[in-house]
Design a protein around this nucleic acid. Sequence first.
DNA 1: TTATCATTGCAACGAGCGTTGCAGTCAGAT
DNA 2: ATCTGACTGCAACGCTCGTTGCAATGATAA
Lengths: 212, 212
Amino acid sequence: MTEKTKGLRPAGGQPDKRRAILTGALALFARDGYTRASLDGIAAEAGVSSRTIYNHFRDKAQLFEAVIQESSGRVADTQIAIIDRHLSKIVDLEADLVEFGTAWVAVMDSAAAPHFALVRQIHAELEHIPQTAVDAWRETGPRRVRGELAERLGRIADRGSLRIPDPDRAAVHLMLLVSNDNLPYGADRRNEKELTAMVTAGVHTFLHGYRP
Amino acid sequence: MTEKTKGLRPAGGQPDKRRAILTGALALFARDGYTRASLDGIAAEAGVSSRTIYNHFRDKAQLFEAVIQESSGRVADTQIAIIDRHLSKIVDLEADLVEFGTAWVAVMDSAAAPHFALVRQIHAELEHIPQTAVDAWRETGPRRVRGELAERLGRIADRGSLRIPDPDRAAVHLMLLVSNDNLPYGADRRNEKELTAMVTAGVHTFLHGYRP
DNA sequence: TTATCATTGCAACGAGCGTTGCAGTCAGAT
DNA sequence: ATCTGACTGCAACGCTCGTTGCAATGATAA
């Protein structure tokens, strides 16, 4: 509303409105969850009439699934970029892994923080989301990222720097260790120093667990 | 309703009713989450009039917090029992850790499955639960378990079987690795063989990461 | 028996929410 | 200028839910 519309508009609603809706819906779904988040709240957050949402999405459920898909794809791209940037050319394996882990937790805690709050909502709502949507999300999100990371680790193992019997499992282990999976086991909120200490310790454990 | 009341009854409602309410509320809160779960549904699940719930608990929020506390304490006791049973007397460290991990994931997947579904709901609802309740839960639940496991690991390290700079971190790493943290990274549902493979691989990584 | 008390069923309230219809407005395309 | 289509504000619907009040029931303790 506060901005002027510019450019052509394809069929099915204006794309900037759609993007605004998706962004606002991500924010509210992430914070409040599917049931608690209201369409009026989403509309307000997006700066859009609540009636417009029904111009772009069939109902609340489909909006939720669209938000999941959109956010998952975007974040997966970001994570894969981090993987490519830090794990393509290896010079010092431990140092490169630490830098990878640092970038990993940084993006999880800042830019992609709403997305991972949404992921917690998804995990809580799993019984109420149609299986097809869950499968689609897993495929375009975590599975794709895990596959990319597993491939990189496998390539490093081929060069002899690691011994990895199961690349998928190694990828999961590395992600778990460097991110502490969002403090589930009673950890406090971390400052900068504790954060790098966590990443370093995780990389250390991973490295000695998979080093030949 | 269907059972006869027996024994004395202390002030504030009958204890079997209270337990039935807590059990039913755990089941529904775990499956549906705080907002979606209705008091009528909980009352039906518990075999109790919805009016009776207000005899035992002030409102829905306090019932939720009571369920969290009750379930967390019970499950923490179970987990600590597993820790004591498998990590007190060490004969073969790797074998004992694998047995520990096997019992760990078994209880998470069966007896305590509703509790960990509830934990996922807590993680999703964190912004809507009073800080005091969150702190109380962390203390009687994950923190207490982590402390117990850290102490055991530290004692093993004192005997020279492990080299552990930070026992708390080591405890978190071990729990993450043996449980894969409830398949967040795109893992499929596991059968029995994959489950032991997961535990074994996790123990292997942990052990080589922390072995001197 | 009588008194106490937890439990129950029912009715009611007020609020919030998803969803739809309708009329009006505004910007771009012909 | 006219037409098209998207957006908006408003009102309304039906529904669910948390919560409370009230009268009735049944069991226990004196």
